[in-house]
């Protein structure tokens, strides 16, 4: 506690500059080197590198947090030149710094591709969109045939009306892709979750709650809250599938949470959504966080 306070104070004051200078003289290493040396790969290292770069007074270091993936290599060289780090003296540094920058730029790139998918509006005239929607039905309801494209049956998987297209709204195709991804990769689990959602008194609307959880995942990504999760679970550049995987985690865990909490009715949804949101945000404050879907076998033996 006290040490943390002293650390905070030092960090925020001008003393930090001299502290770093002093450490550099004693250890012969700059802050970036000390971080790479002293912390394990993952959020512990990458987040510290990111903060150090951000708060640097040097423009080259500051700009490094916004580096594009294809410029990482030259950025590393540039930083080493600025900080006068000799590769021979600290051979691992270059590799480690590169990995941190790949993760940092990868997170930013991931947000851009997620944002692109979100902005893609579901369009009934687009064959691929329509096909994906029908695929969602087939994955969740293998034994029931859809009577027509516009039908009340959509309510059985938790859409609001006769035509799901109006339910994607602000999440666009990202919402549908998330739903299909979960049903495809974890089919038995998704059907199991759907069976909870269709419970007569404890149920909720599977699809639109899913779209709500897409929004949760999206806003956590956008705010940067998911950084430690991705730094810990993806060593290189994250792919959009890693985001969809995170959605699966939320869909599974939310259902579990809902069933455990037993809300009085569906009208309480937003209260429990916030409780769950706070819980997830709490996890994300832990340095070791890794929000990976772990299916309890008693729930879904065949996944």
């Amino acid at each position: 506690m006290m040490l943390g306070f002293i650390y905070q104070f030092l960090h925020s004051s001008f003393l930090w500059f001299w502290m770093k200078w002093f450490l550099r003289q004693v250890t012969g290493k700059c802050e970036l080197q000390r971080i790479c040396h002293g912390y394990q790969p993952g959020a512990a290292r990458t987040s510290r590198i990111e903060n150090s770069l951000k708060s640097s007074k040097n423009k080259v270091l500051q700009d490094a947090v916004n580096v594009q993936e294809d410029a990482v290599e030259s950025c590393v060289t540039h930083i080493m030149k600025e900080k006068q780090i000799k590769e021979q003296k600290d051979p691992k540094f270059k590799v480690n710094l590169r990995q941190c920058l790949v993760q940092i730029s990868g997170y930013n790139a991931l947000f851009l591709s997620v944002e692109e998918q979100r902005k893609e509006v579901f369009d009934s005239d687009n064959e691929a969109h329509e096909k994906m929607l029908l695929k969602l039905w087939d994955l969740l309801m293998p034994s029931v045939e859809l009577e027509s494209r516009i039908t009340k049956q959509w309510g059985n998987i938790g859409f609001q009306g006769d035509d799901p297209k109006t339910d994607f709204r602000g999440m666009g195709m990202l919402g549908l892709v998330n739903l299909v991804f979960f049903s495809e990769k974890y089919t038995a689990t998704a059907r199991h979750v759907l069976s909870h959602a269709n419970h007569p008194s404890l149920g909720y609307s599977y699809a639109i709650v899913g779209i709500n959880l897409t929004e949760m995942a999206y806003s956590l990504l956008r705010s940067g809250a998911l950084k430690p999760h991705f730094y810990n679970t993806v060593a290189g550049k994250p792919h959009i599938d890693h985001f969809h995987q995170l959605y699966c985690y939320l869909a599974y865990e939310f259902d579990k949470f809902w069933v455990e909490e037993k809300p009085a009715s569906i009208m309480e949804f937003n209260i429990y959504r916030e409780k769950f949101h706070d819980k997830v945000k709490g996890f994300l404050l832990e340095p070791e966080v890794s929000l990976v879907l772990k299916i309890e076998s008693k729930n879904c033996p065949d996944d």
């Binding site: 602000g170 639109i208 709500n212």
Partner: peptide, 25 residues
Amino acid sequence: DNGGKTTLLKQLASEDISHITPTQG
């Protein structure tokens, strides 16, 4: 559903309306 109630609510409260999802509850 899909009438625009939540968009209206957020507009009244001067909040961002670009990420709206269907209202459950």
